[in-house]
């Protein structure tokens, strides 16, 4: 072990999760890599009140897309993903970086290929309601009141510049 790695393991304020990159949120307001899936919420192109819940399972690449009311997405085939899933992957790449997304989903493609070309799964059932409620929870953070009691624990979480 070299000195830097040793210092990293003995460091209290070291960075573990790389900061995400800013991106436009209007089309895909929510993307996350959680519960073994790349999942998120994609706005409908035609109806402002409608959103699609899209997900791809890590490893197997099983995918699904439906409205938040559980109606299947019309663009989805048995083995071909829809445009919402493509948007989900595109925005995830912007947010987390291509390498992190590929590693999480376990996709192997050539350097110049789109990650979608490395998907090997087929359509499978997915917990759209769970993902949608995670999106609502995500939004609920913005409703929490600002506090002025010092949070001493935040010293463990320094703000850092994004590394590209």
């Amino acid at each position: 072990m070299n000195a830097d790695e040793d210092a990293w393991e003995r460091g209290s304020g070291v960075r573990v999760v790389p900061p995400v990159q800013p991106r436009k949120l209007a089309k895909v307001p929510f993307v996350e890599m959680a519960d073994g899936r790349l999942q998120g919420v994609v706005s409908s192109g035609s109806d402002i009140a409608r959103v699609y819940v899209s997900s791809i399972t890590a490893g197997t690449h099983g995918f699904n897309c439906s409205t938040n009311n559980n109606r299947p997405c019309g663009g989805l085939g048995g083995s071909s993903p829809c445009k919402h899933l493509r948007s989900l992957v595109d925005e995830a790449v912007l947010q987390y970086g291509r390498e992190r997304v590929a590693r999480y989903l376990q996709i192997e493609v050539g350097e110049d290929d789109h990650l979608m070309e490395g998907l090997e799964g087929t359509r499978e059932s997915a917990p759209a309601a769970v993902v949608f409620s995670r999106f609502l929870r995500h939004l609920a953070y913005l409703e929490l009141p600002v506090t002025t009691e010092p949070v001493a624990e935040m010293h463990w979480f320094p703000a850092t510049r994004a590394v590209i």
Binding site: V20, P22, Q95, L139, V146, P150, V151, M154
Partner: peptide
């Protein structure tokens, strides 16, 4: 001053 936020 502290606020809750999301990662994006």
């Amino acid at each position: 001053v502290a606020a809750a936020k999301v990662d994006t």
